[in-house]
């Protein structure tokens, strides 16, 4: 029996249209006219199963239906169709019971108490999740050690750096030993070192304690580092369910260099890179790691043209999905 079982999941919303000043508002109050209501399907038809101890990336462009799915998995939202079972429970019907078995981290919204020291937030969460005192102490010591929380346990959360706060958030969501951890953009806005630290911790957590992790992210590096399997959704439908390797190899290896030339060049070309787009003196060049390294490419460019500015973009999931549409699945 898989831990998470989703079958033909569907979620439709009705969206009301607004506007028209005070008179428009009055019109909406007194009549149904002018109250344009559209129906939008955030999740059309999604089925998948996640086994215990798996670490799965759940990805797709913005608005693809990722967070709507996560909300249905956690019981925040009731599906409009299909079924969800998590650890033998129906999330929306047994939400409170399920809540004690799951951990949720929203990367952009902390669950910690803003004005209080981190340790106090953890203490409050212990009461919220009814973690026994002994178990709590043991767990806190372990997490403090693994996430290196010691230096800022006594500092108010609002004074923490983004990376420290994320570590605090992770600790907060693990105090009650959840069986499954939902992570929504856990590395967003972090620098490379902080990202790596979080990734190492998650890998360790998954390997040692067998916690199942469902991860949404825009960062291809998160995915290839952490997961073996990925689900790609777009427009509320499952586009891909399979190994990370094939996708990462084929699309994820492609990086992009944005170049501002000092002067207009008729037909710019650099060996090893593909000219993807061009606007005046700005060029978008994509290249593959195994074909040419960034330094070599930059060197080749500067040798040929006068360059004003350069930016290196790592591949993100938007680009991967775009290319899947363009080129099909491997």
């Amino acid at each position: 029996m898989p831990l998470v079982h989703v079958e033909h999941l569907q979620k439709r919303f009705r969206v009301a249209e607004r506007g028209g000043g005070p008179l428009g508002a009055l019109r909406r109050v007194i009549s149904r006219e002018g109250r344009g209501v559209r129906e939008v399907a955030a999740v059309e038809d999604i089925s998948f199963a996640i086994g215990r101890g798996e670490m799965v990336a759940y990805v797709g462009p913005n608005g693809a239906g990722k967070s709507t799915t996560i909300k249905m998995l956690t019981g925040i939202l009731v599906p409009s169709g299909g079924s969800v079972v998590v650890d033998g429970l129906i999330p929306w019907r047994q939400r409170t019971m399920l809540a004690a078995r799951i951990g949720v981290v929203f990367g952009q919204r902390t669950q910690l108490w803003w004005d209080l020291p981190l340790i106090e937030s953890l203490r409050l969460l212990r009461h919220i999740y009814k973690v026994p005192e002994g178990r709590y102490r043991e767990k806190l010591a372990r997490l403090t050690d693994l996430l290196d929380l010691g230096p800022f346990l006594d500092r108010p959360v609002r004074q923490l750096s983004l990376g420290q706060r994320m570590r605090g958030d992770l600790a907060a969501s693990l105090l009650h030993d959840p069986k499954i951890l939902y992570l929504d953009e856990p590395t967003i806005g972090l620098d490379v070192v902080a990202k790596e630290r979080i990734r190492t911790f998650l890998l360790d957590l998954n390997r040692r304690e067998g916690v199942t992790v469902l991860l949404t992210t825009h960062d291809m590096a998160d995915i290839s580092r952490l997961c073996e399997r990925m689900l790609i959704i777009d427009h509320g439908k499952l586009l891909y369910d399979g190994g990370v390797g094939a996708i990462a190899e084929r699309y994820g290896g492609e990086r992009r260099l944005v170049v501002d030339l000092a002067e207009d060049v008729a037909a710019p070309a650099v060996p090893g890179a593909r000219l993807e787009r061009r606007e005046g003196t700005r060029l978008w060049l994509s290249f593959r790691r195994e074909e040419i390294g960034a330094p070599a490419l930059i060197a080749a460019l500067t040798a040929r043209y006068a360059i004003r500015d350069l930016t290196l973009e790592e591949p993100d999931i938007e680009a991967v999905v775009r290319r899947i549409y363009e080129e099909g699945l491997p």
């Binding site: 607004r18 506007g19 028209g20 508002a25």
Partner: peptide, 9 residues
């Protein structure tokens, strides 16, 4: 301010 129709009401 005109855009806050309902609040005005």
């Amino acid at each position: 301010y005109r855009t806050y129709g309902a609040a005005t009401l």
